[in-house]
Design a protein around this nucleic acid. Sequence first.
DNA 1: TTATAACATTGATGCATATCAATGTTTTAT
DNA 2: ATAAAACATTGATATGCATCAATGTTATAA
Lengths: 230, 230
Amino acid sequence: MAKFTHANSCNTCPYKDYALTKLQTNDVDLIQNSCLIVNFKKGENVCKQGTEVTHALYLAKGSVKLYIEGKNKNLILKIITQSKYIGLQSLFGDRIYQYTITTLEDSQICMINANIILDLAKKNVDYLFELTRNISESTNFVYKKIIDINQKQLRGRLADVLLHFSENVFKSDTFELKLTRKELAEYSAMSMENTVRILNEYKKDGIIGIEGKIFTIKQPDILRKVAELG
Amino acid sequence: MAKFTHANSCNTCPYKDYALTKLQTNDVDLIQNSCLIVNFKKGENVCKQGTEVTHALYLAKGSVKLYIEGKNKNLILKIITQSKYIGLQSLFGDRIYQYTITTLEDSQICMINANIILDLAKKNVDYLFELTRNISESTNFVYKKIIDINQKQLRGRLADVLLHFSENVFKSDTFELKLTRKELAEYSAMSMENTVRILNEYKKDGIIGIEGKIFTIKQPDILRKVAELG
DNA sequence: TTATAACATTGATGCATATCAATGTTTTAT
DNA sequence: ATAAAACATTGATATGCATCAATGTTATAA
C-alpha cells in the first residue's frame, strides 16, 4: 500500500466532514491522533470484500468505486467523491466488508481506528446522529439502485446513470467520467458491449456527446423520457 | 384502517424490542404515551411508498412484506416477522417512504410519533446506537439481495430464497410460507410462472416438498449447491 | 521504446427469461 | 350460496440481453 502521514489538523482540514462539527475539540483530537492519511494511487484497493473492518474510512480527496465482487462480474453500487465517509454501515453491522472499495484516481483516505469512532459515537449522540443519517441515506440510495436494476431495461438504466452523474454527482451538463466503459457497465449492471452500443446509439441520435471520457448531456429531456419509460 | 388501542405496558410487553432496554423507564413511558397499537388485517398497507414518514413502525405481532412498487411489477425486499422495527432508515433519511409495507397476516403494529423517537435518540446514545446497528444490518441485507439479483439466475435465486427462509427466518426444515406464488416471485425477482415451474422442478427432483404453503427442505445440500452455482 | 495487456467498438449468435395463452383451483366478497 | 376475483399450473412463443468473435486503439510496464 501507499505511503501515509499522521493527521495533524483535523479541525481546520478543508476536507473535514460535517459530522465532525458535532464533536468537542478534544474529541476531534482523539480522532486526529488515531487518523492516518493514506495516499492511494489509482486502482488500489482501499478495503477488500470479506475482510474484517478495523478502520473507519473517510475519503478526503479523490474518488472511489464501491462494488461487490461476484463470480463472473462486479457490481458497482456507488461512486464516492471527496469529503465523504465510505462504508459507514460496516462499522455498526457485522464488521465484515460486504464490498470492495477501489480508487478511481489518486486519492487520500483518512483511516481511523474503528473502535475509537465507535467509542466517540457512544459518547456523542449528535455525532452518532449524523453518522446514522449518513447510513440511512446510503440505504435509500441502494434501494433506488436495486429497483432500477430490477425494473428498467438497458436503455433506461443507462439513461438514468448518465442523468445521475450530470445532475447529482457533477451538477453539470458536461463532465469527465473517471470510469472505463467496463466500469460504467458494472455501475449500470449490464455488459460492457451493450454499454458501448447504447452510448453510441445516444450519440448518433444527438442525445449525448462523447469525447473519450468527457460526456455532454445534449438533450436531457429526451434522456429523462428514456429513463422514465425504461 | 383498523381499530387501535393505546399502549399501556411497553416495559413489560412480551414483544418489546431490545433497543428499548437501553432507555430509562421514564423515556419508555414517553414512547408508551405516544404509542398506538394498531390492528391491521391481512393485506392492509402499513405505510405507502411516496408518503411522508410521520411515525416509527414497530411490528409487535404478525408479519409484513416490505416492497418497492414499480410500474409493472413489485420487488419485495424483506419479509419481516414479529418484534422488529420496520423501515427505521426512513426516520433518519429524507423522511419519505421509498417503499410500501403490507401485512401478510393479521398483525399488530406499534406506531410512535417519529419526532418523539428522534428526540429520544438524540438524548440516549445507547438507544440510538441500537437503532443504528439495526439500520446497518438492514443495509447489509439489501447489499446481499442486490447481488443475488444481479449475479445469479433463476434456479440459484430461488434456491437461495428457500434456504434463507429455512435457515434464517423460520429456522426449520419445514415451514409455512405466508406468501402467494406471486409474492414469492416478487421476493425472488422473477416471474410468477417461472417460480411455479422451478418449485415443481425441485419437488419432482425430491429436493423440496410442497404441500400448498408448507415447504419442506428435503435435500439442503443439493439446494445449497444450486444456490452457489447460480 | 517496444511489447503486452487492458480498453473500446461492432456484428453475429444463442439462451435465459418474460410474456402470452389456456385451464383449473382456491379465496373473497356479496 | 354463488359469482367474481385472485391464485396456481403448464406449455408455447418471443425477445432482450449476454456471450462470443474479430479488430482496432490506448495505456502500462519492462
